[in-house]
Design a protein around this nucleic acid. Structure first.
Length: 489
RNA sequence: CGGGGUGUAGCGCAGUCCGGUUAGCGCACCUGGUUUGGGACCAGGGGGUCGCAGGUUCGAAUCCUGCCACCCCGACCA
């Protein structure tokens, strides 16, 4: 076990905070509920951004940027959206400070500098974007409009947690407009697919695709599609959402287009987003008591090379060659030849930081023309011939990526339990947690009662799982299919 | 917003109950030496508005009053 990291078993929540802080990903800041994302953490986020951005562009989306502030009158235009976010909005009321006449060196809000209209710091950008789209969309030729923005948003949460829930967070939000309902629904599903692919292939985090129930739906959406992941403590994480907004925002902001028959109608729309919360999901899917574990595809440094016991001319020469060969294969490798710490310290440190592969190079190894290769995912080591080392590492990184996904998938699959009574529901929830696959009568009332009874909520009505009729686990009323319940973050 | 906790060196903490020399310890840092295949050791050294503001007192990290911040657990939420 690593020094100073609380074990998962002892206190999962504290373990998580320890990992985030000690691996140097982020820290609490001087601002309540807001974090400082440190270079290592930001590098992982950048790798996520890079890949997602590529996937968005490959499907025809372009990036733009809209203002941080939303005038209150625009914010309130779409009633449900406004109501849903009202409780957690930061509001700008003044635009100037002045010296406090009663206390030297202190500032106060200048009461004379009150804004005519309050500005809401965006908790999401539908309002400001749809107000803009009204001017951009006139004809069917302007559609579809496929725009994404990378931005920060603010939601004044009661209780925050590094990456999982912070008052300010970074995300991307896609906002698209379409001429017809079918196309908008296809877009919503396409983006859910992209999120699922990204989660599984890059984060090595298995997810279940599904739709939200009405009560869990995004404020202002007609339908919310979600990807749900399972964390190591048995709690679910909503990792990304894609919303079919119907004509709700088009009507609220009066966004109409003229079709080929010269008929005017409201556009159909979608919005979709993932946030820095994915960082939390990444950590809680793979990491262990030794520290962070990163999938190779997102690791800022994929390979670290440690001289044993310390750097010398001969070792440097060999390492330089290895680094060059790895670079030629687009593998990021760092030579940890810092003289002040010894190999054992570096091993532990690099494990804490989650670097997927470590290569140890010592005099003894060089005599045999080999190096020691250690995997972060399963902590095994083996001796590998230096000739062909780059090919070996290249393959190994792929194996690690696959192994992480398979391991997480097995963990997740083992924790999807079919339950048919409330007794079973509660006992499984208590003993192993995870997803409970149970029948539900389709009413918000029952959903609410189960939540009050067990703290578990319906994470989604899954899309790719078996359909089977049955009886509601609580009321015994008929049910068309099982849904996934879980305690969630 | 309710409950619990914490605030003393960069980090982790002791000291506070019961006020009293110069506020201490471990890690980290600096210097020198010995070490070096899984978190080295020895010696020496630097670093503090004790969260903030008042008050009590000859004397406050310690007692009293007020405030602030952050963390954890709940309710709310991505």
């Amino acid at each position: 076990m690593s020094k100073g990291i609380t074990s998962q078993e002892e206190n999962y929540s504290q373990w998580y905070t320890d990992i985030v802080k000690k691996a140097g990903l982020a820290d609490h800041s001087a601002v309540r509920g807001c974090m400082v994302i440190k270079p290592t953490g930001y590098a992982i986020w950048e790798n996520m951004q890079k890949q997602l951005d590529k996937m968005f562009k490959e499907t025809g989306h372009v990036n733009a940027y809209f203002p941080l502030f939303v005038p209150k009158s625009l914010f309130e235009a779409e009633e449900k959206n406004a109501e849903g976010f009202a409780k957690e909005c930061a509001v700008v009321t003044h635009y100037r400070l002045k010296g406090d006449p009663n206390e030297k060196g202190k500032l106060m809000v200048d009461p004379e500098a009150k804004l005519e209209e309050e500005l809401i710091v965006r908790p999401t950008s539908e309002a400001i974007i749809w107000n803009t789209y009204r001017d951009w969309i006139k004809s069917h030729r302007d559609l579809p409009l496929l725009i994404n923005q990378w931005a920060n948003v603010v939601r004044w949460e009661m209780r925050t947690r590094l990456f999982m829930r912070t008052a300010e967070f970074l995300w991307q939000e896609g906002h698209t407009a379409h001429s017809n309902e079918k196309e908008a629904i296809e877009e919503t599903e396409r983006m859910q697919d992209i999120y699922a692919t990204f989660a599984e292939e890059y984060m090595a985090m298995p997810v279940i695709k599904g739709k939200k129930t009405e009560s869990e739906r995004f404020a202002g959406a007609t339908e919310t599609y979600t990807i749900e992941a399972l964390m190591q403590d048995g709690k679910a994480l909503q990792a990304g959402t894609s919303h079919f907004l119907g004509q709700n925002f088009a009507k609220a902001f009066d966004v109409k287009f003229t079709d080929t028959n010269n008929k005017e109608s409201y556009v159909w729309s979608t919005s979709w987003g993932v946030s820095t919360r994915l960082m939390g999901g990444l950590i809680m899917t793979h990491s262990d008591d030794n520290g962070l574990v990163l999938p190779p595809k997102l690791a800022p440094t994929q390979v670290v090379i440690v001289p044993i016991p310390k750097a010398n001319g001969e070792i440097n020469e060999v390492v330089d060659k290895i680094v060059d060969q790895l670079k030629a294969k687009n593998i990021t490798a760092v030579y940890d030849n810092d003289k002040k710490s010894r190999p054992g310290f570096k091993f532990a440190e690099n494990e804490l930081k989650g670097i997927p592969v470590r290569i140890g190079v010592g005099k003894r190894d060089l005599e045999n023309n080999q190096v020691e290769v250690a995997r972060r995912d399963n902590l095994t080591k083996e001796m590998v011939n230096i000739d062909g080392i780059a090919e070996y590492i290249d393959q190994l990184l792929e194996d690690i990526q696959t192994n992480l996904f398979e391991k997480a998938k097995k963990f997740r699959d083992d924790r999807i339990t079919k339950v048919d009574s409330m007794e079973e529901f509660e006992s499984v929830l208590e003993s192993k947690g995870g997803f409970l696959f149970a029948h539900w009568d389709g009413t918000a009332d029952t959903e609410q009662k189960i939540k009050e009874l067990t703290k578990a909520t319906i994470r989604c009505i899954p899309m790719n799982m078996e359909i089977e009729e049955g009886k509601c686990v609580l009321t015994g009323k008929p049910s068309k299919q099982r849904v996934l319940f879980a305690k969630a973050y």
